[in-house]
Design a binder for these strands. Structure first.
Length: 897
RNA sequence: GGAGGCUUAGCUCAGCUGGUUCAGAGCAUCUGCCUUACAAGCAGAGGGUCACUGGUUCGAACCCAGUAGCCUCCA
């Protein structure tokens, strides 16, 4: 038999075979029934995406949780799907069209969307197919897309609903503008980056009138000419939009200038010097140029002082005609920044230029530098929203929704406490178009369709004769659809009380990266309470970010991210899954290293070979075996049985704590160390000999249980072995088998001493450079034979000794090895280095004496005896007695050398 | 600038409400083995002033304060 099975585990064929089988048997499809539901909704990957290591980790964890729940008899439902990712996808499609010589601006909205949908149909499913390679047990019949008609409808309905509740408004405000994507972004989509830039000190001349005034007021005729004020800025191109200069009213340096006027260089616009506490006196020169159109704070200042707003940038970030200076109009903002600095220098306006480190906002999606821009956008009033739904914060703080790791609660709270309104309109085409309808004057109503809009319009303006309204050109933020995901995948908006939503919602676990805690997690909680009155999920597992060995983030541009599919091809999906999980405690960053995947592969190979061993045995009835063998095997079985249940109990605890990597490590050690290294060696027949039926049977049962416990982590190899270890019928699978439960009904044989004897003998062989094949006799001097006698056969087998006798006297010519307070004599056939032996034992005596001393100081400390718990004091006394006895043994053994 | 977190073996991390010499695991390293399941293996071994400084306590990796370094989030 064993000859037919390959010596190493080859995953490829096996993985494809079983994944197809699972799909054929429809194991992953869930529909409501009498069982307890267990639901996970996938964080929908972008349709533009290909599988990267982050997805791998994320989805492996979800698969572990869902497979385990399924085996525990729950009705497990893992809903897959993709996100339309408006800005990312639109950017991708625009780029692809450009490569084909087509400009977006030449296309109508309809034509562009046609291209986009074509693209989505062609590539949007790739990432889901890749997940299948990983073994993901998603209910593929339930695959959803955030922009499919019914989900889009939910988005539109929600918009209308919130608008009617007064939670959505439209307002002209300063927003984060992405000049590359040509759209507004929410605050969360802006990433601040440190950059090395320059701080330009620019001189603004006072007007002639102001000069005279200053000269007069200060009685200093020198100030009549060449009087100027210097400001510092990192964005000199924006001076063309300057509307004032502002100083701090307490700043004595500039008191005499307040209310005077200066000229903007080149365009000679007269602007006033105003005073406001906002200006910091220490930064730059203490004078701030006020550019209301291009800075958030300046805008606020402008509003306060009633300044005009002149926007000198186009939506693409070029200088607009309003800048007035022909040299710059139509040019890119960064080119102009360089050029204007040179021009200012030439014109004598530059006082100095300093190197300066500052932070610049960039677009999360396009990477473009964000420009603050005054535009009309749609907003969700978050303060109002939170006032209406206080559970959004309370549920998380009270662990009604549990975060793993819990310290993410702080981050969450901080964000909620400082929540800002959510800008939800995007100047894009790919997404759900905003259901607002305008007449030519710009009056609007919010309605689902043109017809409904007309009706609403008519009601509001009974005299109106308008027959045509124009729909808002903009679409909604992607997250405005993904925040509904846990509800909308079960059609919870279309039909609030349908079977699915009632059964599968709230979901159980959400597994996601910490980077989208605000974008997505927080907003799903909001949507959950607002639209269903319930939490969307019970647990949130935050994975870490995947980094490479040098702690760099994995990214395409660095090229440090391995191709997951190649990894799977090389090491097998099980190996990759295990490699990722071993090094990923919740919330910790994961330093990915291929050697971990190798470890996973090696483990699969180990299991495979254990399987080969067992399948290779010839089985005979128990009646043909000696009682010595039968007894010994029975002891081994009992020992492993207890060991398995202890471990299973610990593993359960790790699962409830969501410490998956620790649970996996326990299973790893249980299989490798306890089952393979100890148990199988204990029962393994001599080469060529058969094994007795009952032990064989029990070993198979253990193996099967181990495979079940491991299955959520390594689905493929466990299925393959499960299928082959016993007769199975078509339609059976480990996927839907019963997960083992803890049974603690037998006493474990006390094998500790026996194991110690075995290990000590192996160690002795090692230290003497003896071959494991070298056989010798041993004798044991003990007060309590029962610790060894029942296990004689096992000891002889595993330690490879020919005889084990019990003695009452010291044995001359034998090497003495202390086993706790007992003495073991080994009759070596080679010369023993007595001095080395002596040294070793002396060392151990020293150690024990040190130990005794520490216990003694404790015990002689009156305060310890008085304050510590009595059982603790008792323990210390016991420790002292044990140590004393051991020292006695060691001392006598030294004398005998 | 604000908030949170981290620092334990060469690497990645456990260590729950202080109490077994409590300093642990995996990997890596070293030594010896091609012992007919597995060299992707077997049997062993070594390795750490728990970042630093002080404090609380009978007792501190664990609690408190400060210092240094690193990380994340927010502005």
């Amino acid at each position: 038999m064993s000859n037919e099975i390959s010596k190493t585990y080859n995953p490829q064929g096996i993985e494809n075979k079983w994944y197809s089988y699972w799909l054929e048997q429809n194991y992953f499809h869930a529909k409501p029934d009498h069982r307890e539901p267990f639901t996970i909704v996938i964080p929908p990957p972008n349709v533009t995406g290909v599988l990267h290591m982050g997805h791998m980790l994320n989805n492996t964890i979800q698969d572990v949780l869902i497979r385990r729940a399924r085996m525990q008899g729950k009705n497990a439902c893992w809903v897959p799907g993709t996100d339309h990712a408006s800005i990312a996808t639109e950017a991708k499609v625009v780029q692809l069209l450009r490569e084909r010589g087509i400009k977006k601006s030449d296309l109508s909205r309809e034509d562009f969307l046609k291209y986009a949908w074509e693209w989505k149909e062609k590539y949007g499913g790739i990432i889901l197919d890749q997940l299948k390679k990983l073994g993901a047990s998603c209910d593929w019949d339930r695959t959803r897309f955030t922009m499919e008609p019914s989900l889009s409808e939910a988005v539109v309905d929600v918009f209308i609903d919130l608008y009617e509740k007064g939670l959505i408004y439209r307002e002209l405000r300063m927003v984060n503008w992405d000049p590359q994507g040509k759209t507004a972004l929410s605050d969360e989509e802006v990433i601040y980056k440190d950059v090395q830039s320059k701080l330009y000190y620019i001189k603004y001349k006072l007007t002639v009138d102001s000069c005279e005034l200053v000269a007069k007021e200060t009685n200093n005729t020198q100030l009549k000419t060449n009087n100027y004020i210097t400001i510092a800025t990192t964005r000199p191109e924006t001076i063309l939009a300057d509307m004032a200069i502002c100083v701090n009213p307490k700043d004595e340096r500039y008191l005499h200038l307040i209310g005077k006027k200066v000229l903007v260089p080149f365009i000679n616009r007269e602007i006033e010097i105003i005073a406001d506490e906002y200006v910091s006196m220490d930064f730059g020169t203490g004078c701030l140029k006020v550019t209301p159109a291009h800075d958030k704070n300046d805008y606020e200042l402008g509003k306060k002082f009633n300044l005009e707003v002149i926007d000198i940038l186009t939506d693409e970030g070029f200088i607009d005609e309003k800048a007035l200076d022909k040299r710059y109009i139509g040019k890119d903002r960064f080119a102009v920044r360089k050029q204007i600095a040179i021009d200012l220098e030439e014109a004598g306006h530059i006082e100095k230029i300093e190197e300066y480190k500052n932070q610049v906002g960039t677009s999360e999606r396009t990477g473009a530098v964000i420009e603050p821009r005054l535009t009309l956008q749609w907003w969700v009033d978050m303060k109002k929203f939170m006032a209406k739904n206080p559970q959004v914060l309370d549920a998380v703080m009270s662990d009604e929704i549990k975060f793993h790791p819990a310290n993410m609660k702080n981050t969450y709270k901080h964000w909620i406490d400082n929540i800002k309104d959510w800008c939800i309109s995007r100047q894009l085409w790919w997404g759900q178009q905003i259901p607002a309808w305008y007449d030519e004057a710009g009056n609007y109503v919010v309605a689902k369709t043109h017809e409904e809009a007309l009706v609403k319009f008519q009601i509001r303006n009974p005299k109106s004769e308008i027959r045509n309204l124009k729909q808002d050109e903009d679409v909604l933020d992607t997250w405005f659809s993904s925040w509904l995901w846990p509800i909308s995948v079960f059609d919870g908006f279309k039909d609030k009380s349908n079977k699915d939503i009632k059964y599968f919602y709230p979901t159980n676990d959400l597994v996601t990266g910490p980077d989208i805690i605000f974008f997505w997690v927080a907003r799903m909680v909001m949507a959950g309470y607002e639209f269903t009155g319930q939490k969307p999920f019970k647990n949130v597992y935050f994975t870490g970010l995947i980094r490479d060995k040098q702690r760099r983030k994995m990214s395409k541009s660095l090229g440090n991210s391995p191709d997951p599919l190649e990894l799977i091809a090389q090491y097998g999906a099980d190996g990759v899954r295990m490699g990722m999980l071993l090094c990923s405690p919740a919330g910790n960053d994961i330093l990915f290293d291929e050697s971990q995947v190798e470890q996973g592969r090696n483990f699969a190979n180990k299991i495979w070979n254990a399987f080969r061993l067992i399948k290779g045995w010839e089985v005979k009835p128990d009646s043909e075996f000696t009682s010595e063998i039968l007894n010994s095997n029975k002891i081994s079985e009992d020992w492993f049985n207890v060991r398995f249940n202890e471990a299973l109990k610990d593993i359960e605890v790790k699962f409830t704590e969501y410490k998956l990597s620790e649970a996996l490590m326990m299973i790893y050690k249980l299989i490798w160390d306890d089952y393979c290294a100890w148990y199988l060696e204990m029962i393994k027949p001599v080469y060529g000999e058969p094994i007795n039926q009952s032990t064989y049977h029990q070993s198979i049962i253990f193996f099967e249980k181990l495979m079940k416990v491991l299955h959520p982590f390594m689905p493929f190899i466990t299925e393959d072995i499960w299928q082959n270890i016993m007769e199975r019928k078509v339609g059976e699978s480990i996927c839907i088998s019963n997960y083992p439960t803890v049974e603690m009904n037998i006493d474990a044989p006390k094998l500790e001493r026996a194991f110690e004897v075995i290990t000590k003998i192996r160690e002795l062989r090692n230290s003497k450079g003896m071959s494991p094949k070298e056989v010798f006799e041993i004798a044991i001097k003990t007060q309590d034979k029962t610790q060894y006698e029942p296990f004689q056969y096992l000891i002889k087998k595993l330690a490879n000794v020919s005889a084990l006798n019990f003695v009452n006297e010291k044995q001359n010519g034998a090497t003495l090895i202390p086993i706790d307070t007992d003495e073991m004599f080994v009759f070596l056939t080679i010369e023993v280095d007595a001095e080395a032996e002596k040294e070793k034992i002396t060392k151990e005596i020293h150690y024990l004496e040190g130990f005794m001393k520490s216990v003694d100081t404790k015990l002689s400390n009156e305060k310890f005896v008085a304050n510590a718990k009595p059982e603790l004091v008792e323990k210390e006394r016991q420790k002292k007695a044990d140590a004393l006895a051991k020292i006695e043994v060691l001392k006598s053994s030294i004398q005998s050398l």
